[in-house]
């Protein structure tokens, strides 16, 4: 089932605010190669550079649900981040996803999205673009 081409340019509603907790940062750091155990402490309060994907992924999942695409048929093609400032514990962040492009190659939909991640004051913290490959079911 191809994705509706009229989606290009559409902005989806902002995600629910996500509060960055120390626990979430520690779990994410441990899951992305940080050493566990004694080295925690000050290091664990630094938010890993790819942590904004947690907020962006929430917005992406809402978008996929909205357009009726099964997550299992999505493969990640590309992700890029541009940061206005490092994230910090206690940031309250919201992602607003816009569909930036859509094309079809070999029965797959190639979906381009851009998510603006903003803090509680509305200031842009990080902009992140994703390419999602929706694998067609026709094989």
């Amino acid at each position: 089932m191809p994705v509706d081409p009229s989606l290009v340019g559409r902005e989806f509603p902002p995600s629910e605010p996500f509060v960055v907790t120390r626990e979430a940062v520690e779990a994410f750091a441990l899951a992305t190669g940080a050493p566990g155990g004694g080295e925690a402490g000050t290091e664990s309060t630094r938010v890993p550079a790819t942590f904004p994907i947690v907020i962006a992924f929430g917005a992406m999942q809402a978008f996929l649900d909205d357009v009726g695409v099964d997550l299992a048929r999505i493969v990640h093609g590309e992700q890029r981040f541009a940061y206005e400032r490092p994230l910090a514990v206690d940031d309250e962040l919201t992602a607003t996803l816009t569909v930036s492009s859509l094309r079809q190659i070999g029965g797959n939909d190639i979906i381009g999205t851009v998510s603006a991640i903003t803090d509680a004051s509305g200031a842009l913290v990080c902009s992140t673009s994703a390419t999602l490959v929706h694998r067609g079911g026709g094989s």
Binding site: G77, E78, F81, A82, Y83
Partner: peptide
């Protein structure tokens, strides 16, 4: 601090 990060998979 990282200003940009990205890749194609």
């Amino acid at each position: 601090p990282v200003l940009e990060l990205g890749a194609k998979f």
